Amino acid sequence: MKRNVFLWSAWAAIPAVFSSLKAFAMPRTAKGFKVNAGDARFGVHYKMKGVTLNILDIKISGKDTDGDIAVFEQTGLTPNGGPPLHIHPQQDEWFYVVEGEYLFQVGEDKFQLKAGDTIFLPRNVKHAFLQKTQTGKMVVTYMPAGKMEEFFVVTDQWSSPPSKETIEAAFADHGMQVVGPPLSAG
């Protein structure tokens, strides 16, 4: 009988052990911090070469939040540009338009957004956006953080426009699935 109690107690403790290991592997930031306007959390401004010419600055890293959330500021430098229609199976996204105008597709619905507007994109729903103005700026939040920071490291390293297959592979390697072309301005 005591052996069974020991075995069940040991079995019940397994989630706590894994939880402790997760905290050890990716500790949550215990102290608040400020990221100044125009700066990135770790001083790196990522460019989404090949997909757009946009600049992405990490403001809150998944490393700060134990992977719960990542927040980027996206400076839009690609009029009539945007990512291909894609899905995030494991992440919700939230966008807040700071300046400029955008067209978003979420599922089959299309939305016009301008400065001050917010849009929520649930996981597993196809979506894309198109920058309608010469420049723009958005705050983009991923919940959970997933592999988005690593994705932008990859796109920043492209030195020439990548093939459709390279773009699809980069999306897939970082937890996303391309399901269609970018939105068009027409």
Rank of each mutant, 00 (worst) to 15 (best):
H86L: 06
K2S: 10
W94G: 03
A23R: 15
S19T: 14
T29H: 11
S61Y: 11
V98P: 01
A12H: 05
K47G: 06
I14Q: 08
V179H: 05
P79F: 03
A12S: 12
E150W: 05
F95D: 07
E93P: 06
A37R: 14
L21M: 13
F120I: 09
M176E: 14
G175R: 09
G50E: 09
A25E: 13
A172R: 15
Y96P: 00
K137P: 04
T155D: 06
W94P: 00
L77P: 02
E99T: 13
M1I: 02
T135E: 08
D64W: 04
A70V: 15
G136R: 05
V178C: 04
T52F: 10
K49C: 10
S159C: 00
A185N: 10
L7R: 12
S20F: 11
Q177A: 13
K110C: 00
Q112S: 08
Q105A: 08
G32I: 03
H86T: 11
R123S: 04
A185T: 11
S163K: 13
G76V: 10
R28N: 05
F95K: 01
V71D: 03
A10W: 08
K114L: 00
W11Y: 11
P79S: 05
Q157V: 00
I119V: 14
P181W: 01
V154Y: 05
L183Y: 04
M143G: 14
G76R: 02
H174S: 08
E165T: 13
A115Q: 02
P27W: 05
Q74N: 13
W94N: 03
V139P: 04
F24P: 00
W8G: 00
A70F: 01
F6S: 04
D57G: 10
S9K: 09
L103V: 02
M176H: 04
A30M: 13
F129C: 03
M138D: 01
V139N: 03
Q91W: 02
K49S: 14
H86V: 07
G146Q: 05
A12T: 10
M148I: 14
L21P: 00
S19I: 08
Q91T: 07
R28H: 07
G50Y: 10
K126F: 00
V17F: 14
D66I: 04
S9E: 05
M48P: 01
G175A: 06
M148C: 02
K137H: 03
A115P: 04
A12Y: 04
V51W: 05
A185M: 04
E99V: 01
A10V: 12
M1T: 08
E101R: 14
V5S: 11
A25T: 12
G76K: 01
V44C: 00
A145T: 11
H45L: 06
P15G: 07
P79E: 07
V71Q: 02
A37K: 15
S160F: 09
A30R: 14
H86I: 09
M138R: 11
T166S: 13
T78R: 07
